[in-house]
Amino acid sequence: MTAATIGRPGFAFQAIAIATLAALFVGSLFVGVTNLSIRSLVSDPEALRLVMVSRLPRTLAALLAGSALAIAGLVMQTLARNRFVEPATAGTAQSAALGILVVTLVWPNAALGWKAAGAAATALAGTSLFLMLAHRLPPTQPFLVALFGLVYGGVIGAVATFLAWRLDLLQYVEVWMTGEFSGILRGRYELLWVAGALVALALWTADRLTILSMGRDASIGLGLNYAGVLRFGLVIVSAVTALIVVVVGTIPFVGLVVPNIVSRFAGENLRHTLPWVAGGGAALVLACDMIGRLIRFPYEVPVGTVLGVVGAVLFLILLLGRNRND
């Protein structure tokens, strides 16, 4: 049957998308305070070292974080059955920050991995509570759930900030709340590969997540272990968000904007759309990180700040153009 293949992005479109991502990847290696050229890479060992120690890790971090953020957003939207929530604003990232704060308090010299584990645990608790409450809101009013998410995330964020202020740890919290790649070096980003692995796991369970998005009754009717897949999704969202908050900090809008754009054009059969969401997230974060490096050259604007602006504009365009395509 051809119905399964028509209406999906064609080969040319896929080629353009991959070329764009590749161009961003290469571009990101060459953008920065120290001027690099391809020739210097061959002739100058210092230049090569700069790439291997700083530029390449930074670029890989942006790719991994971007795709993982977008996928986490999509999975969270599937769990909440609401297109307007994302981990960065609906309490997951804030709960993660709270978790790192607690770990830092009781064990100041904890390794990054332990901080990530603590953050994942609190993120799981915070996100579970959010979903429990969100499922009680009327599904006929999607913006109510989104609004509730903002308030919920805001409250948890405020608790974390207040605690940090009392404990004189405010500068740490600011680091976790604003995503930034400038501190990324070899040896400082590798935890993000775990987030990448979780994205692969999500790809593998795409059909089950799609069925989950049809709702509880449809899921049970098709013999899906509804509660099990729900828990699996929660773990993905929480772990991915915690890892990103620990390594680079909170990056807003990626998890919101990218899945919404992809859904507009390609729908929500996750088996087909997850690769586009992952690639779109990677491209968006990479592009915004490069903008952050260039816009006040030679100073850097954090990627979280750039995305605060770019993401908000994209989101507004999405909202205002909502009914035209439908």
Partner: peptide, 8 residues
């Protein structure tokens, strides 16, 4: 059934 997913 309230299936709201954007599926073909």
């Amino acid at each position: 059934p309230g299936v709201a997913s954007r599926l073909r």
